[in-house]
Computed example of a mutant assay.
Amino acid sequence: MITRDPRRFAALAAGLAPDFGPATARAAFLVAPDGFALAGESASDNRYMAGAGAFDAPRALAQHRALHQALSATLPTACFAGHADTPDALFPNNVFATARPDAAVDAAAAPRLVVGRMRHPVRQREAARSDIRAWFTDMLGYEPVDLSGQPHPCELTGALVIDRARGIGIVGLSERCDETGARLMHEAFGLRATLLLELAAGEYHANVVLAILAGRAVLAAPAGFATPAALDALDALYPGRVIRLSAKEHAAFAGNAIALDAGTVWMSAGAGAALSDATRAALAAAGFAVRTVEMEAIEAAGGSLRCCVGEVF
């Protein structure tokens, strides 16, 4: 089911067992910020991006390396080189993502590499990378599902936030993902149900304002959605575990967080510093410790920690 009706979505999703697949990834991949610089096309619809003078390439590289080291201590984490002609490539989860078909239907089905269709030409170049494609298809045996050549933008797990345990997703509609693109992603990931929500004016990706953590809890910035009340539907799925972020937390990228195991939520140091006592207590009650990495140089490019992490399921 794919719908714009939050109540219909919640009614179906509430009855789904968490047997779609593992709630968290078994590995991760990154792309280094080589050639880190302002991408003018991306800046046209990303209000979080700083001006060209704020881009500190050496510091971004150092912080990205620290992120790689931190994640590698938790799970296998590969890092591909970046290129000067793709300055946004350090956010690979928008372009490349992985999926496993519904385990309750066919646990032996081959996993998929999904390649997204980016809105801007500067990012469309990333989808042509033969090294990342070959790593998944030739080395790991993933079946490719290539959406990059069709006309509808669908920026994968930037636009689509997935509960991998239940096989459900929430798409934030914007210039970076239209309704047809959302339907293509729903099919490519093989999801059981997907809810379409309009993002608020000025927002570009759902994963900046929404995170589903290991299928157990949610971080949500209500101001990031055109109809904030639509998030109330999540209360039935995650009772007592929908943590609504303040304007300060939202602005600091606290919604751009990720759980890579059952007990840890990762976010930038700036996001961690912005968390209220109530948010920290709610995360602790849900069983999550908060771990952070300095990311302020990278955040000049308009994304934060979760944007940097491609998940391997």
Rank of each mutant, 00 (worst) to 15 (best):
L71S: 00
P92G: 05
P87D: 01
L75Y: 13
L75W: 14
T74W: 13
D85G: 11
P76A: 15
H83N: 14
A84N: 01
L75I: 07
T77C: 10
A89T: 00
P87A: 03
F96E: 00
G82T: 01
C79N: 02
H83K: 15
T86Q: 08
Q69W: 14
T74S: 13
T77V: 08
T77K: 04
F96N: 03
V95Y: 06
P87S: 00
F91V: 14
N94F: 01
A70V: 10
H68M: 07
N94L: 04
A66C: 03
T77I: 04
A89L: 02
P92I: 00
P92H: 10
L90K: 00
S72P: 04
P87T: 05
L90T: 03
S72Q: 12
S72H: 08
N93R: 05
P76T: 10
G82F: 09
Q69P: 00
P87R: 03
N93T: 11
S72A: 13
A89P: 04
C79I: 10
N93S: 13
T86A: 09
D85A: 12
L67R: 11
V95L: 13
L71A: 03
P87F: 04
A84T: 13
N94E: 07
A84P: 01
A89K: 00
A78Y: 01
A70H: 11
H68D: 02
Q69M: 13
N93V: 10
F80Q: 02
T86C: 15
L90M: 05
N93E: 10
N94A: 09
T74P: 02
P76V: 10
V95M: 07
D88L: 04
P87W: 03
T86I: 06
F91I: 12
A73I: 02
L67F: 01
P92Y: 05
A73V: 08
H68S: 09
T86W: 02
V95C: 09
L71P: 07
D88K: 03
G82S: 05
C79Q: 14
F80S: 04
A78Q: 11
H68F: 06
A84D: 14
A84C: 02
Q69D: 15
F80G: 03
Q69K: 07
A78H: 09
L90Q: 02
F80L: 00
L90R: 01
Q69E: 15
F80V: 11
H83T: 15
C79V: 13
A97P: 05
Q69R: 15
G82Q: 07
P87I: 01
A97H: 06
T77Q: 02
